[in-house]
Amino acid sequence: MPPRILFLLLLCAAALGLGFGLMSGSLPLAPAEVWRALMGNGGDTATEVLWQLRLPRVLAAFCCGGLLALSGVLLQALLRNPLADPYILGISGGAAVGALAAMLLGASLAAMQLASFAGALLAIVAVFGLGFLHGERNIYRLLLTGVVLSAGCGAAVSLLLTLAQGEQVKGMLFWLMGDLSHPEGLLFAWVVLLVLGLCATVFSGGLDVLVGGPDKAAALGIAVGRWQMALYFAAAALTVAALQLGGAIGFVGLMMPHAIRLLGISAHRWLIPLSVLLGGSFLVLADTLARTLWSPLQLPVGVFTALLGVPFLLWLLAAGRR
């Protein structure tokens, strides 16, 4: 499929997804009502619900999906590994340990956010220090360091879960599976997404060269070490912003780039914007279903990303073989 057409299709999908997310909920709104409320001259309740609850929520979902997809694209290019996802380098592990430890101690939401942020930062610094600075730049050392750290964090998370009681466990599981019901720091996350998304698109030609291997990239004029460092920190910033917004939502970061590649587009100039659009729309849809299907029960969005995404990707994989 020509990338331009796919881009337009995904723009429409994003608009439709956002519209669907704004209409659905415990107070269903017709498209006209949504429009009136958005313009600020609708009925009081509708305007209130829309501006206070739904708009932040769908914007958070879209942004989070975009952040994860972009982070996935960058890490797959950095590690030259199609199985890389935003959580592979242990950043989410560090954040999870921080968040869960704060929950266990009964900290407030703000303190929990701060603790998860601190945990993520620690993980970023540790992986960078151990995996990157030591001797020659070896990307496998970086990958292994991240995977080992993730395993350690996984053990710590299990320990925290066994120590927790009743209600606490549920809150922890929601964080671990991803939950967009507290969209704090929305503006910051959008700024991160737009700035890094733009930078990545501008430097997309270099990313195409970089996936060809370090020697090839250097021979074609890339300062490999500097690029790797920039990619690492950009991906880390994107992951942290997504974790702060919605916890560890799985599947999006790994699979959105592959979905675009399966459609035959692999040049980063298109891969980046298309993955961001697809990731954002996809997460809005998943989140809307997660909060409406069994309402008033709200399910963690991470469950729905996999439930929706797995059949879609299996279909794409099967269709791609023909």
Binding site: R80, P82, V211, G213, K216, G221
Partner: peptide, 17 residues
Amino acid sequence: ACHLGVLPQNEGGEFWG
């Protein structure tokens, strides 16, 4: 890279395009 070209024996990368 504008003056010197290199053909490596193994590229060690994967190109999807």
